[in-house]
Write a protein that binds this DNA or RNA. Structure first.
Lengths: 342, 342
DNA sequence: AACGTTTTCTGAAACGTTTCATGAAACATT
DNA sequence: AATGTTTCATGAAACGTTTCAGAAAACGTT
């Protein structure tokens, strides 16, 4: 590829007739550069179209790059989140790079290692499947902020979440207030769930609400897996499981779903089976995905304020990069978006 | 953060009692290392948990990292694409890093620069809004493969596409064969569209099919913008525009939509307005998004074979990294997925 | 005028790799 | 036994930054 005409910090220094150090100082607007100096250097940089090499920077100082590890790319929650993160970063001079973990521990771990190998200045992890000690270990190497992962007592990294317990409570109570007593929760199989997972926290909220409503004996949690990652498409709930579920349960029934990912399919299958919504089957989901607002879906859902979460996480990681070491744990308030599904 | 115990290539060399060069050679399995040497070194690497620093590598040789620039993250087509890319990369020892351009030229350009600053070994661009000369310029710095961007004669980079013209023809003819004569196309406003864009190519295919079917006089292309990027959520078509569209046109009408992104909303609004599908309004989309298969959507669509495209692009970029310089332009065959929407 | 501060600037070392030039050892060919 | 060829191993230079230690200049204070 390219050859000679590579413009480095040396080229700039020569052109501006100053030292290399001076250019570096201007670049990082370090202390002790005169206005005259800055002008000269900036002019040369502009003229030559100079861009500092991130790899070279990484050898000594910062890379001005932050890594974001996403579990899966098609989750609508993730899209909104990313928007929030980007918004905050636009105002900074840090760059964002993303990794896509596809929900597999091994890939996630590799990606985090890669980010560290790239000397990224900080890392935002979205709903990682990693244990506390592993996270603590990583946090010793690089500032870490978690989104969608509950470790409210961790000392070495920050967390940003919606109050999942409260969100589940709100949904469950809303179903109750609408007259439902046969209220179930649909979530992921427990073999994939740990206490720090959002779905676990939502189960806690559901159970707590049921107790409070005097329905402790009616607590009923059913599970439905996502389709195995085919790499051919998005994660989708297994439609057969959902059909069986709907066939086998007494009507009327109300479902609080851990995610719109499931809720939309539940609603869809219910309608396909000719069940009346919300009279026979009522549903409230979680995440308020864009598709939930479609007329032919019309799914009520708990909104996390994902872009808010993204903005907060971005702010926190930038704070940590500039020195903060005390942990912060942010909890957003969930909001019920009412639609005709209950 | 971390302190002394940093394990570098020197540490490994010392531990294995060999030269630094030897370790480097083993790492890149270069020519001329004895089995004994390799064993010793690998053992030390394993023991010490050594990982080469990508930034340091970038200073001289390769970084073993490939960048992927996505336009927008929530497009279902993108998700499938990424799956395909990742699948191919798993077998290599190259890593992937993603950038999200949100369809804005400025952000896209910055991200590409960032990837070059990071000395990435190759770049895959998904539907970028960049002109040929700019791309040619970039291709001199780094191997480039484009997905969803038609420059079939470019000499300096590869392209990977579905045959968009043919896809549009298939859809248009399918509507014709179903008895429709009032066949329109719904696409993006032309101010955002260039000849290299997939939507432009689909327009070409639509027009060509109409000509072939003797409906040249009935060619009718209508446009609908996507919602301004609020950063608060996904791109969505403007519902008002779509409603106006449906109100104002004679029925029965058939729409070929440039993307399911629009088609799903068109279908949704049609049903919300009480129009009969497919008798009053027939629709065929493009991309075969996962949601199109929902019972309450049931949208026929042109499938691009996105994961195939991803695999091809990945292969091509790896080939270019290992030296190929002649251009390759791959065209996938589109496939109509029949559903009740027409 | 002498002295201490502060500001502004610089050369050189350091970061962790890869690559280059070179040489020693082993092997093959006469 | 002498000579060429391959294989295997190495020390040192190079990559493009940041940072360290310190010099020169400007400024304030006595």
């Amino acid at each position: 590829m390219s050859k000679a005409n590579k413009v480095t910090i040396k080229t700039v220094a020569a052109d501006a007739e100053v030292s290399v150090t001076a250019v570096s100082n201007v670049l990082r607007n370090a202390y002790g550069v005169s206005d005259a100096m800055r002008d000269k250097v900036l002019k040369s940089i502009e003229k030559l179209g100079y861009r500092p090499s991130t790899t070279a920077r990484g050898m000594r100082g910062q890379t001005y790059t932050v890594g974001v590890l996403l579990m899966d790319i098609l989750n609508p929650f993730v899209s909104e989140l990313v928007g929030g993160i980007q918004q905050t970063f636009e105002a900074s001079n840090y760059k964002l790079m993303f990794g896509v973990g596809r929900g597999e521990r091994q890939i996630e771990s590799n990606l985090i290692e890669t980010m560290i190998d790239n000397r990224m200045d900080g890392i935002i992890l979205v709903a990682p499947h990693l244990e506390l000690d592993r996270l603590d270990h990583l946090a010793r190497e690089v500032p870490i902020v978690l989104i969608g992962h509950h470790e409210p007592n961790s000392q070495n990294f920050d967390t940003v979440n919606v109050d999942d317990v409260e969100g589940a409570r709100i949904a469950t109570r809303a179903l109750f207030d609408a007259g439902h007593r046969n209220i179930r929760m649909l979530t992921l199989p427990s073999n994939n769930i740990a206490e720090f997972d959002v779905s676990f926290q939502r189960e806690v909220g559901y159970k707590r609400a049921m107790q409070e409503l005097g329905l402790g004996d009616a607590i009923h949690i059913v599970t439905c897996d996502l389709r195995p990652k085919t790499l051919e498409g998005a994660d989708q709930p297994l439609p057969e499981t959902i059909r069986t579920l709907l066939h086998s349960c007494d009507k009327p029934v109300a479902y609080f779903c851990w995610s719109d990912l499931h809720a939309i399919h539940l609603l869809d299958q219910a309608r396909a089976m000719g069940l009346r919504v919300p009279d026979d089957v009522a549903v409230i989901g979680f995440d308020n995905a864009p598709n939930s607002a479609l007329h032919s879906v019309d799914l009520a859902s708990i909104d996390q304020g994902a872009s808010d979460l993204g903005r907060h996480a971005a702010r926190l990681v930038l704070e940590r990069i500039s020195g903060r070491s005390s942990p912060q744990h942010f909890l957003n308030s969930p909001r019920l978006v009412r639609r005709a599904s209950f």
